[in-house]
Computed example of a mutant assay.
Amino acid sequence: MKQLLYIAPVIIDFEKLNGVSKKILNQYKVFSKSYNVTLLSYGPDCLYYLNNDFFETIPLNQANRRLKMYSFINEKLSVNNYNFIYSRYHLCDLLFVNTLRILGRKAIKMVVEIPTYPYKKELLKSHNGFVRYFMDSSSNFLLRFFVGRIVTYSQDDKIYGIKAINTMNGIIYENVIPVQKKQFSSKEIHLISVSMTVICHGYDRLIEGINSYYKLGGDVNIIYHLVGEGEEIKKYKDLVLKYGIEKHVLFYGFKTSDDLDVLYEKADIAINSLAIHRIGLQTESTIKSKEYAAKGLPMVSSYTVDAFSSQDNSKYVYQISADETPVNINELIEFYKKMYENADHNITEEIRLASEKRCDMSVTLNGIIEYFNTAV
C-alpha cells in the first residue's frame, strides 16, 4: 500500500473534540482506506504521531509547538519514503518551505490544503496578524517549486501559481445520527448553532433580530440554543442581558456526543455563518453546515450553502442579506412554516439524502485521491 504523510498543525484534544479536530481525524480515516497514512498533529501540550494502531505523544519540552513539528519532520520523518504528502496550511514562512523542500526529495506528489481563502482581511485585523501576513506573502510564491496542487474551498483555479483542486468540507455521514421527524408548532420554534464562535459567525445578527421581534410585539416563542465557546460568547451574553431576552437565548458552552444529540433533537432550524462578509469572504465551506445537513435540519445562512445544489438551497436554506441588518424573525417564521406546516413527507430525511451525495467525505476527498493516483 502506498505511503501518505498527513501534516495537520491543529490542536486535537481527544477529551474535547471540536469540528476541525473531527475533520482531521475523519480525513485520516478516509485516506487510510486508500493508503498507509501517517498523521502528525498537535496535542494540547505535545505532538501526536499516528500510524494505524501506533500512537505516540512527543513532548514539547518547552519548545514552540510549530518549531517542534518542523524539527521532528526534518530530523525523524525526512528519512522515510512517502509517496504522497498532504499538509494543512498554517501560513507560509521559510521554515515551512524548507520542510517541504526536504520532504519533496522523498515524495512523488505534494498537496497543501488551505482551509480559508482568501484570508488577508481576517489576518490584517491585528498587529500580530500583520506580521504573520507579511511573512506569508514574502514566501508563499516559493510553494510552486514543491507543491503540485492546492486544495481550496473557494472557486479559484490557481493559488500562488499552483493549480487548485476545488472541493468542500465534508463529514462521514454514517457517524451522524439524523434527528427524528419534526412536528409543526404554531407557537414555538427552536433554533440551534454549534461552533467555536468567531466574528464571522455573526450570531449577534440573530440576537438583534430576536430583540427586534419582541419589541414589535412578536408572540411566537423563539428559543435559540447557542452551543459552543469562543471569542464572541461574552459579546453575545452581554447583548442578551442588555435586551432582557434570557429566556429566548440559551447558552450551553461546549457539548458533544449524547449531550449534543439531545439539543439537536430540540432544534427545528440550524444557524450557519451569518457574517462572513466581515472577513472579506463571499463564500465559505463550513463543517457545521455539513453536520446540520447530516442531521437533517434546514438552515439560515448569509450565503449559499455548498452542502446543497442551487435548487436545494432554495428549498432548505433561508438566505439572509450579507450585511449587518438583524435577522428578520417574521421571515424566519414563514420559512419554518414552509418547511414543516402541512408537510406530508419527512423533511429531515430529504435534507440528509440531498446533501449526502455532495458532501460525504468519501465524495469530497475523491478529487485529491484521484490526483494522487494519477500517474506522474
Rank of each mutant, 00 (worst) to 15 (best):
Q3W: 00
P9K: 04
V10R: 13
S21K: 01
N26L: 01
S32T: 12
L39Q: 13
L39V: 09
G43H: 05
C46Q: 11
C46E: 10
N52R: 13
D53N: 14
A63M: 09
L67K: 14
L67H: 11
F72I: 09
F72Q: 07
S78H: 00
N80F: 11
N80P: 02
N81K: 13
Y82V: 02
S87R: 06
D93A: 06
F96H: 13
N98I: 01
L103T: 15
V111N: 06
E113S: 10
P115Y: 01
Y117Q: 10
Y119P: 11
Y119W: 08
K121F: 11
L123N: 14
H127S: 15
H127G: 15
N128C: 08
F130T: 15
V131Y: 09
F145T: 13
I150V: 14
S154H: 08
K158M: 09
T167W: 09
N169K: 08
G170N: 11
E174H: 06
P178E: 09
Q183P: 00
F184A: 08
E188A: 05
S193P: 07
H201A: 10
Y203S: 01
D204G: 03
R205Q: 12
L206D: 13
Y214L: 02
G218D: 00
D219S: 14
I222K: 10
I223D: 07
Y224T: 05
H225Q: 08
E229D: 15
G230K: 03
G244M: 05
H248V: 00
Y252F: 12
T256C: 03
L260T: 12
L263K: 05
K266G: 04
A275M: 07
H277G: 08
R278N: 11
L281G: 05
Q282S: 12
I287P: 07
S289L: 00
K290W: 02
E291R: 13
G296F: 04
S301P: 11
Y303P: 02
F308K: 01
Q311E: 15
D312Q: 09
Y316K: 01
Y318N: 13
I320W: 05
E324K: 11
T325D: 01
P326K: 07
E331F: 02
E334P: 11
N342G: 11
D344G: 04
N346H: 02
T348K: 06
E356D: 02
E356R: 15
C359Q: 06
D360R: 04
F372P: 04
